[in-house]
Design a binder for these strands. Structure first.
Lengths: 196, 196
DNA sequence: ATTACCATGAAACACAGTGTTTCACAAGTT
DNA sequence: AACTTGTGAAACACTGTGTTTCATGGTAAT
């Protein structure tokens, strides 16, 4: 028998202009709304209306607004890591902190919305995952620190520092942020000057 | 005129045995349910039913399940701080970390449910608030670190380390936890060996 | 250009969870 | 005993989610 029309089809044909346009409209709509209020005060009907697409169409692409936001967050974290990861090394701990600060400052609006809008949890999760991969390549630096804990600590502390930074009305400079991040996160994790 | 019966009365008479029994039942009911599933999968009807009280009665005491959980979390944080704060000082950075580890280990069940059940946000918030008060008493230690950031970092990193610790099947010892917490959180914040 | 395909929009619906009103009753207070 | 007040239950309105069905119009291939 022919498969009956399913409610939520799988879009193998992502090349269809209608699909890409719908998906793009939904993403931008959500980010626009996140500028005004947190995720749990935003309804799917609202996202769809702002995007100019039908309510039911939303579910043809995403199962929930959380999933949509998480997708955006996960992609953005990957983009961040691709750019800044090479800057992290044991000898120059400041380089990594500066690379991070510069990237986030350049994408300030997006990151503000993600961090304060409800995606902080997903950002932390994905950040931890990628940090874990990074840690797996490098050797374990401290014998007193399970590498899993190091990843969680590094990711969480970084996300938290970024959240604070982006929420400031009159934020400190990238250099000052890098100093804080380097001394509180990078250096304790990546150097062995802490082994007594 | 006599004030008409309001829907959600203010219980000035907290001494009424019925009130204290209801409130206590609701708290224990929520904590019991948190052992099985996260907060957002728990309904108010479920909390009330488990507590053995009527659904509408819930709203006479709390506006939402989040508020109920936050109340529990806030009180527990205050209790924690009263006990461990005296142990924190610049000369013996390990003492504070040990006091924290011991307290949480003793209250392991409660803290597991709070941290993984959905109160982590409120715990972080209250932890930050009390850390800020603590930091206000002590002078600012690092000139490169705004004390507000120090509070946020200390609170978040601590909550995150505790969450990891309590989730382990075969957790590390209190001593090992204290070592990690001391070197990643307490020492960077409270000693000035980091000023180059 | 005709055809087959398929994403979309709209209407109608089922459903769960929240929050409120009202009232009878029972437990607590004086 | 009389008064006060917290509780339980029923009935309800409301919001947001998720689904089904069908007509329409854009898309792609021969």
């Amino acid at each position: 028998m022919t498969q009956s029309k399913v409610y939520r089809p799988y879009f193998a044909t992502t090349s269809d202009p209608r699909v890409v346009q719908t998906r793009e409209a939904l993403r931008e709509s959500l980010l626009e709304l996140l500028d005004k209020k947190p995720l749990d005060e935003i309804t799917i009907r609202e996202i769809a209306a702002t995007a100019g697409i039908g309510y039911t169409t939303f579910f043809r692409h995403h199962t929930s607004k959380e999933e949509l936001l998480n997708d955006i967050a996960a992609e953005e974290i990957v983009r961040l890591f691709e750019l800044i990861l090479p800057a992290f090394n044991e000898t120059d701990t400041r380089a990594g902190a500066m690379a991070l600060g510069c990237y986030v400052k350049e994408h300030r609006e997006l990151w503000s919305r993600l961090l304060t809008g409800g995606a902080a949890g997903k950002l932390r999760e994905e950040f931890t995952r990628l940090t874990r991969e990074f840690a797996a390549v490098h050797g374990n630096i401290h014998d007193w620190l399970p590498s899993e804990v190091g990843s969680i600590f590094g990711a969480s502390a970084t996300i938290e520092l970024l959240t604070w930074w982006l929420q400031q009305e009159d934020p400190i400079s990238v250099e000052q942020f890098a100093t804080i991040h380097e001394r509180l996160v990078v250096r304790p994790l990546m150097t062995s000057e802490n082994n007594n």
